[in-house]
């Protein structure tokens, strides 16, 4: 007698969904925070630009 395996697909999809949603949110959150920090950094350097001339150069983007 061969016992056929159960299906259990909802658990399988739940696990993969959680993994992908968490990874995506984490990566997107970091990228969003990095961009807004970079923007603020650039603005600050622009306003400080006159006094610390060379400092504005390594902003990059």
């Amino acid at each position: 007698m061969t016992e056929l395996p159960p299906t259990n697909l909802p658990y399988l999809f739940a696990a993969f969904a959680v993994v992908w949603v968490v990874f995506f949110i984490y990566a997107a959150y970091m990228s969003w925070r990095r961009q807004s920090a970079q923007r603020e950094l650039d603005e600050m350097r622009e306003s400080n630009g006159q006094e610390s001339g060379s400092g504005g150069n390594d902003g990059g983007g």
Partner: peptide, 16 residues
Amino acid sequence: PTDAVLGHVQRIFYVH
């Protein structure tokens, strides 16, 4: 392949 005992849910193994 689908696991003989656990079925499809065993595929969680490949991320877990």
